[in-house]
Every structure is written in C-alpha cells, then in structure tokens.
Design a protein around this nucleic acid. Structure first.
Lengths: 223, 223, 223, 223
DNA sequence: AATGAATGAGGGTTCATTCAT
DNA sequence: AATGAATGAACCCTCATTCAT
C-alpha cells in the first residue's frame, strides 16, 4: 500500500488536514498562515479543504480540539496505572505524561492556544472546560490524596496545580518559539528540565521535617 | 499654548505609539493588528506613525526593545539593594522585581516575544542577547553565591534559572491570554502565584537536612 | 456551453490583459495607471490579474515583450519577400512594414519604451537586444547591399539606420501623444508622412549624379 | 558671493525649483517623482515649494513653459542672422539651433511633453500654440522661401517641416531614455546624427537635375 | 518667507472564500 | 469528491497637500 494510495483514502483527509494545519499555523502564526499552504502541506487543493472545514477559524478550533481533546483522559489513565505514594505518581506518571506531550506534535498546540485564545472565545471556552478544569481536577485530586495521607505538605492545591502545569506549558511554548530558533542556550535541555521540574516540585511538597531548618525559607515579601 | 501642546505631543509621539502598539498587538495579535488601529489608539493618523517608524515590523521590534531593553538592569539594581542571604534576595528582591514586571505593561511583551520570535530573527537575537543571557547571568550569580555559601543545595544552576524564570514568563502570558478572557479560574490569582512560586522555589533549594527525609523524593522516571 | 465560455476566456486571459494593459498604460501613463483599471478593461477582477502576472511591473514588461517580441522578425520576412533593388525594398517592404506597425496597437508600445526605459533596466536590456540590435542589423544589411551594388551613396550605415528609424518611432510617439489630443495639425497626416519620409530617405541615398549639382548641399556648420 | 548666499536669494527660487523639477521629473517620470525630491534638489523644504507653485501639476506646466517658452524666438533670431541661400540657413542656422537645444537641459522637456501631453490638456494647448505652430511657421517660411527661389524642390512644406523636426525631437527623447542607460550603441552619436540629418534633409530638398537619374527613386508603395 | 509635522485619500498586493466544472 | 480559477474586501504603505509656528 503506497503512500500515494494512503494519501487518497478519504477517511484520512481530516487527520491529514489537521496535521498540516498545526504545522503551518505554528510555523507562520495563525493569522499569517495561508489556507493554501495548509492544503498544499496536506496534499490536497484549497477547495478540498473547504469540503472538510467551513473556514480557517473552524480549522484552528478543530486542530486544538483534536490534539487537546483527550490529553486529560490520557493523563488520567496514566495516573490510574500507578497507585503508589503520591510523590511517585507525580514523579513517574505525571512526568511521563508531560514527557510524552512535549515530544509529540501536541506540544505545538499550546502555542496556538496561548496566541489565539483571546481572539476566539470558543477556543477559550473549550480550553477551560475540556482541558483546564479537568486537568485541575485530575492533578488536584492527586495532591489532595497526598496531603490527606500526609505525604505532602498542606499546600494550596489550586496554586500548586498551576505551579506544576504552567512551567510545562511554558516548556512547550519555548520549544516552538525560541527553541525553534536558537539551540545553544544552556539550561533548557527540555528533558532535563522536566526531570528537574518534577523533582523540585516534589521536593517543595515534602513535609517539613521538624526542627529549625523550616525557618530557612523566608516569607516572600514583595511590598 | 498650542505651541506647547504640539511640542509636548511631538516629543511624546514615540512613546505614545509604542504604548498603543503594545496594546493593539497583544489585543489582536501582531499579524491581525491594523497599523491604523495603532495610530488611532495613539491619537494620531496612520501617516504620522510612518514618520516615526518605517513600518509595522519595525514598530514591533521597537516595542519589544523599549519594554524589555532595561528589564534586566532594573533587576540587577533590585538585587544589588539587598545583600542578605541568597534565599532572602530570591524571595524579596527577585520576587518584587517580577511582581513589578507582572503588574506593568511589560508583562504583555512576553506575549509578543513568544508569538513572533520565530518570524523575526532580529527579535530572537535581541531577546537572547539582551534579555535571556544577561538574565541568566544575573540570576545564575545569585544561585551560585547561595550554593557557595551553603545556603542552597548544589543544583544545576542553569536549569534552576529556567525553573525560576519560565513560570514567571508563563504567568505573564497567562495574564494576556486566558487571564484576559476568564477571571474565575481558581488558583491563578497571580500575586498569590508569585508568592507561592518563589516560596516553593526557595524551599526546593534548601539544603536537605540530614536524616531519612531526603529519601522521600523519588527519582523522576519517565522511561 | 459555459464550460466552453470559461475555457475560451481562460486561455485568452493573458492576451486580454496585455491588450488592456497597453491601452491603460498609454492612456494614463504607467505610473499613474491603476491595476484595477487594467483588470476592469480586460473584463476581470483585480485579483485575477495577479493570477497571470506577478505585479504591475511584470505586466509592463510583458506588454512590451509581447508587442515588440517579433516585430523585427516580421520585418525580416517582409524584406525577404522582395529581392529587387535596395531602393525598392526600402520604399516598398520597409515602408509597408512600418505602415503596419504604425496602424497596429504596437505603435503605442514605443510610448511605453521611451517613457519607462530609464526606470526598468530589464526593459532597456530587452529593447536593446531584441529590437534595436536586430533591427540595426536588418536595415543595415539592406543599406550595405545597396551601397555595394552602387545603388546607394556610400553613407555611414549606422547613422542612416537611425535616420530611417527614429522618425518612424517618433511618429508612433506622436500618434499617442499630441496626435491623440489635437487632430487638426497640418503636415502630420501620418501615412502621408510615412510616404514622404521614405521617399526623402531614398532620395538622400541616391548616388550623386556627376556634375556641379553635387556642390549644392552645404556642409552642416554648427560651430 | 558664496553658493550658499546665492542659494538664499529669493529671486532665484523659482528658477532653482524649475531646474530641480526638470531633473527629477525626467529622472523618475512625472507621476513617480516626489515633490519632496524636487524641493530637496532645489535646496528648500517641501513647504517652500508650495509658496511658489500651487501644486505638482502647476510645477510641471511651469517647467515646460519655462524651457520651451522662447525656444522658437531663439530660432527665429538665429535664422535672421543669416540671409544666404535657404540650404545654408538650414544647414547652419537651423542645425546650430537644434545643436544648442540638444546640448541644453531643454532637451529633457521634450520627454515631459511627449509623456504627459495626454494627461494635461493645458500642456497640449501651450505646446501647440507656443511651440508647434510658431515653429511650423518659422521653418515653413524658410522652406517656402527656398522653393520660391528655386533652391528647393517643390515639396509639401508642412510634411517637410515635420521631417526636419520630428527626428530632432526624437533625438532629445533618445538622449533621456535609452541614451541615459546604454552608451555603446553605434550610430547615434548625437552630434554626428544632427549633421547627418540636416545634410540628408538638404540633399532630399535639392532640385532634381534633369536626366534619367530622377527615375531612380521608386514611389513608396505600402499597399 | 520658511519650515516640517501631520494628514488621509489612494493604490498595489494578498488571500479567504466561492463555485462552475 | 475534487479542483483551481475567480473574486473583492482588507491592509500596508506612499505622498501630495495643508497649516501652525
């Protein structure tokens, strides 16, 4: 079964278009990307694209939904496979989960989400309901379990979720912005960063051992 | 009186235009932003804009350079004011520095940098040479000092710099993407996040007290 | 039927556009002509024009190349048809050739060439290599033949070529400048002028009959 | 009296502006020329130009009127100085007259006249009434005198005037179009051309000596 | 008289979308 | 279903002209 033949399978069109769209949108930026380029990358004509998606905006939404639609479910499954101590789920399941996302084309969609969220309310809505909230619940539950069991300090769960997630999102953005231009910056070898991040996070969640060492962390004073 | 008005306005044109440009570029996205809108926001006509900047691209570069040009120097000065323990500089000077950035319009430029870096090599070069590298040096020096004095664990300095900085950048991006659309997400009240972030970071840098608790952090296993 | 219509139109687009472009460019002047006008004259929309030519400049070059591309070859063929005395080739073939050019839309391209040559080096190059030089060779050969056979005086060939050609070019320019505005000027009824011009030229080429009449032409004294 | 000082003399402004305008208009083409460039070439600001001429069009008309306004009168004076045989006036006075025009900046105005005549009816009117018609009268009178005296053949006067004038105008156009780009074309060394042209013209005007040689010029047959 | 900052209409070009085939 | 020619609205940029100083 040749590539050409596979290209001709109608059932593959939507996926091909989404893949092409993601690549072109991230490469050029959504507004600057040309529908024609997406079609060409997908190996079809411009008119064909419009048979599958009603317009450029709809294509963007479809790309985001396609790549982010079940990311949380995948994470949930990953978490479920391991029922050990919360810190281990964090450092194994969750880290592996993000590691996979970072390595996949899905990492690029965060670029689109962050860049285009403001201009497409439907994307914002989708992202909040389908990604942010379920993700918050999933990771929040892990944290709560750890806290309840005394494995973690009694931190603010929501804030800690963001502390875990935002750097990972940022890493994805970095991969597709500065990381795509400059490769010799020390310190952001991404996989090392992921390891470092989860380790630090886990460390910051460790219960403070009794003793004077707890006093070493000064309160953050910004005023 | 009208002389005064004109002269006063004249000398302020560049600043007015940069402020307007930042707002419009972030609001609409650079590619989708109309030069006309920038001019109107600045209270001048389209033609006037071209008296000060040779084109839309140049305006983008000027915006980024204007708002990020001395951000690091400001941080260095902030750091210099406080010569106490490294953890205190971290939780006071550095936290306050980012707090200020986050509260200022400069927070929005990170949106532009991340979104447009790929399409403008000159912006990438500016950002690396004028922001990333000096910033890395500034914060890296603080960490090295802390490590040398035994106030911090012997972490990888460059990775830790990114762990400190990337979440703050992400917070700025968040402010101007999802944060500009949805306000009722629990957990990312930004200033609380800043406090939380620096506290966690400081905690993760604390030397591990002797004893069995050190074993509590499992190694990150992604494979 | 509509297929036929569309297809027929499609294949004729380039020619339609070139015709329209020539008319509009000469009518308004190239710089002042609007691409939109060209498209409208050709019966298509502005966007369509850009499917066939990458821009206004390219359209100008295409117009000139289209109308002047084989003008010399046509002349050569005309000359070849008649192998009589050189003076007869001059007064029949060459005169008829220019008569045809003058009556055709091609006469207008000289207006474009003369007006725009300086601003488009590629047009200058094309004109020199494809029109001036071959034309000089074609007419020069005719003159040389006449001189060798003793039918013409021993004139400077290159200068005589220009004496033959420049007035004809000027007549074309006149047709599309003053001739297009004012019609009641005595003496430039163009076809009479063509007759007169070739007759005078032939007369000036006649060998001087022996005798005192040769002394009648005074030397040109400009200093 | 320094150049700077002379530049500052108000009475010189109009002339300076006209000189600058001629140069810029011919260099860039009228429509593509920028008023700003004209002002800069004249050593004044754009606003100053508008103190002397109400607009770009008016400037064009002024340039043409300035350089062509007394060209015919100059010719008339030149003709008047010499009252010998008509052929000598032709080859001396008239040739010298055109020689001077060709060498002066005035040669460039023919470029403007030919290019812009159609778009400015007032220029056409000026040109016809102030240049073409008086010139036709001046040269026509010379020819008529020569014919009456039997020094010239009984040619069509008006047609012969154009045969004399059009090549000279064309030479001026050539100087500022192809001649300004390419310098190594054989045969159009302008002053040689002028000599050749007037000599040929005089020769073609010579009365035909009795005898069989008159039959040598074939009638022009274009149909 | 001279300046030059400001304006805004105008035009070249692009590209999302449509639709006849 | 697939194509790609055609459209025309939209946008960046230029530059003739104005006018306050």
């Amino acid at each position: 079964m040749s590539t050409t033949l596979r290209r001709r399978l109608k059932s593959e069109r939507p996926r091909q278009l989404l893949e092409a769209a993601l690549e072109v949108f991230v490469d050029k930026g959504f507004a600057a990307a040309r529908v024609d380029d997406v079609a060409t990358h997908a190996g079809v004509s411009k008119g064909t694209l419009y048979l599958y998606y009603p317009g450029k905006d709809a294509l963007l939404k479809a790309v985001i939904a396609h790549y982010l639609g079940n990311a949380i479910a995948v994470g949930a499954e990953e978490f479920g496979r391991h029922d050990g101590p919360a810190a281990e789920v964090l450092c194994n399941s969750m880290a592996r989960w993000w590691w996979t996302i970072f390595d996949s084309p899905a990492s690029a969609v965060f670029m689109l989400v962050v860049s285009e969220l403001r201009h497409f309310p439907e994307i914002a809505e989708f992202y909040v309901h389908e990604v942010v909230e379920p993700g918050q619940r999933l990771i929040g539950d892990l944290l709560r379990r750890g806290i309840e069991r005394g494995e973690f300090r009694d931190v603010d769960v929501n804030e800690t979720v963001y502390s875990l997630v935002l750097p990972m999102v940022m890493l994805c953005l970095h991969k597709h912005s500065l990381g795509a231009c400059v490769t010799d910056l020390p310190g952001v070898e991404p996989h090392a960063f992921i390891r470092h991040h989860f380790e630090s996070a886990a460390r910051a969640l460790m219960p403070v051992p009794a003793g004077p060492s707890a006093a070493q962390v000064p309160p953050v004073q910004v005023r």
